[in-house]
């Protein structure tokens, strides 16, 4: 759906995005993960054709975004960081306008506006001025605007920022619903959001691609990071540590409390065997600790990877 080849975007001498390449498959949900100022928004604005790249190639649905920007924009729905709403319009009138300028004509339009209102659960407020809506509702109007013309690709820039936990959950559910009908790229700096909604993750920092796009497991492999399993046992004996360390793939077992143990591993996934062995000691709880948070911090604090397509460069 998306092909990005050594995309660079400079603001003066500052490279906001530096030689980034990646691809996004049809129907997948890709998360852009990175600290504030990493270049997430800049990359997204280039993808939607509202910002021209300094160099590099970007194709959306096979259409070159720079050379044929207007055509590419037909296939894209975009939610910027601030929902781009006209506050003095009603929700319905606004979505009707958004559909019109995306080229949805005549008879189709009412049906598509209805569908967008339905999908984003805006039915109760469709006749109200956007100015009078809460922030969560305005965000939903922003999402409705992005999908009203039923684009192949949805680009959502921090769709849950500034919302309360209940609203965040609603937006997440909504994105889950949209999955499958649309290819979705969303940016965030919240890790749990990535895990909840995304198939693959792309980590960027200071304009460079650090890791991905990859699943959480692939990331772990790429970054050479271990897995930590935290166990809570009802009847821990002295032989627990020896028993767990004997399992294939387990590197070390450390006791972190009276009943809690951390099992670290690299290579083969030992979770099943660990849990089976631990049940003999009254397994109360077993969960993966560290995980994405650890991977992310490791990736972001590591020196930036070599720019893509610069394979010849001597380190």
């Amino acid at each position: 759906m998306i092909e990005v080849v050594s995309l660079t975007r400079r603001y003066g001498s500052l490279a906001a995005v530096d030689q980034v390449s990646f691809g996004v498959d049809d129907g997948e949900v890709l998360g852009f993960l990175g600290p504030n100022g990493a270049g997430k928004t800049t990359t997204m604005r280039v993808l939607v054709g509202s910002l021209a790249p300094t160099s590099g190639e970007v194709r959306v649905a096979g259409v070159d975004v720079t050379k044929n920007s207007k055509e590419a924009r037909r296939h894209i729905g975009y939610l910027p960081e601030a929902p781009p709403v006209y506050r003095q319009m009603t929700v319905r009138a606004y979505l009707d306008f958004a559909a019109r300028i995306r080229g949805v004509s005549g008879r189709d339009r009412n049906a598509k506006v209805d569908r967008a209102i339905d999908r984003t659960a805006l039915g109760d407020v469709s006749g109200r001025l956007i100015d009078h809506l809460s922030k969560g509702y305005r965000q939903r109007v922003g999402i409705a605007q992005a999908l009203v013309h039923e684009p192949k690709l949805l680009i959502l820039d921090e769709p849950t920022s500034g919302l309360d936990p209940a609203q965040v959950a609603e937006i997440r559910d909504l994105i889950g619903d949209l999955k499958g009908d649309h290819t979705i790229v969303l940016s965030t700096h919240i890790l749990s959001e990535v895990r909840a909604t995304c198939d693959r993750v792309l980590i960027i920092n200071k304009g460079r691609r650090i890791a991905g796009p990859a699943t959480e497991d692939q990331l772990r492999e790429q970054l050479g990071a271990g897995r930590t399993i935290r166990l809570e046992l009802a009847r821990p004996g002295d032989e627990v540590i020896a028993a767990l360390e004997a399992i294939d793939g387990v590197d070390a077992v450390t006791r972190v409390g009276d009943t809690r143990f951390d099992v670290t591993s690299t290579g083969t996934d030992p979770r099943e065997a660990v849990n089976a062995a631990a049940s003999a000691f009254g397994l109360l709880e077993s969960r993966s600790a560290g995980g994405l948070e650890e991977l992310y911090l490791r990736a972001v604090s590591a020196p930036a990877a070599k720019p893509d397509g610069d394979e010849e460069q001597v380190a």
Binding site: V48, G49, S50, K70, E71, R73, R74, I76, Y78, P80, A82, P83, P84, V85, Y86, R87, A98, I101, R102, G103, Q145
Partner: peptide, 14 residues
């Protein structure tokens, strides 16, 4: 100032 220009810029409109 309100950011609604983004709607127009990301639409297939010149």
């Amino acid at each position: 100032s309100t950011g609604s220009l983004a709607l127009l810029l990301s639409s297939p409109v010149s």
